[in-house]
Design a protein around this nucleic acid. Structure first.
Lengths: 209, 209
DNA sequence: GAAATAAACGAACATACGTTCGTTGAACAG
DNA sequence: CTGTTCAACGAACGTATGTTCGTTTATTTC
């Protein structure tokens, strides 16, 4: 009925984050109760408050940390990429997919639970997300300026590409048929071919659409 | 304090559906209370039960009807399409986007609130969704068999394409810069070029990824 | 016009929620 | 060894939730 032998703050906090991630991923933020969360960590509900001030703060922390990691990882990947044509764009796509397959739960929450964020937290995350989208938009514009890519509209194209890549975290299962590298290759080809500065497609002349 | 003059069952039921759609779209299913919903329609909470047996049944009805409409609309669009190369695939893509831009709320809910469905309802919707994905997978395989498309993996390619197209309903705003037809054209080009049976891309030799 | 049905209501139910509080005993700093 | 901090606890608070019930009056049916 008091402090448990061997209990250690940071360890417990990490366990709460881990369990929170899994529960919110599975059931959603609103549908996840602190009693469930506490039970998953082997605590009483009140004890959670030794580690997080509110449920909302936990959600924000999970999403915010993920965005920071994603941005830092991407910037490092771009840094490490060569200067060749499309090299940085390729690096962006590969990093995005690798990260999204590797950290499905974070990504899923960051995309599906944005609405559950309080206004200030929401704005902060949107800002980070804008910065991330900006990286891709910039890469697309660079390649377009060099004539290596056709780009009717940089932002919308970026949204389309991101939606496609991010979608992978919805259906991907580690035990599935394709391994991550195959999935990365498939998506990269699809995107780069789709963007390629190529003779415009013959428009359909047969159907009504 | 009793039946209101001019009240009409089907009209009220439709109003509940409309308001429920908007509220769930904005706040999510779990975060939408029946008191909010009733207030939006100008009713008391108890009166909702004259029109829907449970909150869950309302959600299921919204999602289920949407899936039925989507399937029926798609089948009609394919029927109406010509037999030319890529004609049916084009028709699928155009219909999917038009529907998704037009009925953002339904689509958003059907994709984001699946977890909130009770197991039986969930299975029913997943079944319909499988059928829908199957249509695209079939089209892709037809085109691949005719040598008009490169297809490393039909299901994963279909998921990628659907994720990209469906993503549009996340960011699309009717008052935005691009009108629906421009968005449809952009996506169609991106997808068809991406799939095109073309000389494989030179793999990057410059970057580490 | 009477009987049956439809569609609203107010009041209340049990339950669950996020959170606060004071307390207790382990871990750690001097 | 002592005093402080840390990390757990049980109990409770106020509020909100989905839903049920019996009642009341408009509308429809015969």
């Amino acid at each position: 009925m008091a402090r448990i032998a061997g209990s250690h703050g940071p360890t417990t906090a990490a366990a709460i984050r881990r369990a929170g991630l899994a529960l919110i991923h599975r059931h959603g933020y609103e549908a996840t109760s602190l009693r469930q969360l506490a039970a998953a960590v082997g605590l009483r509900p009140a004890s959670l408050y030794n580690h997080f001030p509110t449920k909302q703060a936990l959600l924000f922390s999970l999403i915010h940390d993920h965005m920071i990691d994603l941005l830092a990882g991407t910037e490092a990947a771009l840094e490490a990429a060569g200067r060749g044509p499309l090299a940085r764009l390729r690096a962006f796509l590969a990093h995005h997919l690798r990260y999204h397959l590797d950290r499905k739960a974070e990504v899923f929450i960051a995309n599906f639970e944005l609405r559950a964020l309080a206004p200030g937290n929401h704005a902060a995350v949107i800002g980070l997300r804008r910065r991330y989208e900006g990286l891709l938009i910039g890469l697309l514009e660079e390649e377009a300026a060099a004539g290596r890519v056709t780009l009717p509209d940089a932002p919308v194209t970026a949204y389309a590409v991101l939606a496609m890549l991010t979608g992978a975290c919805t259906w991907y299962k580690p035990e599935g048929r394709l391994d991550p590298e195959a999935i990365i290759a498939l998506h990269t080809d699809l995107v780069l071919r789709g963007l390629a500065a190529a003779p415009p497609l013959a428009r359909a002349a047969s159907g009504p659409e």
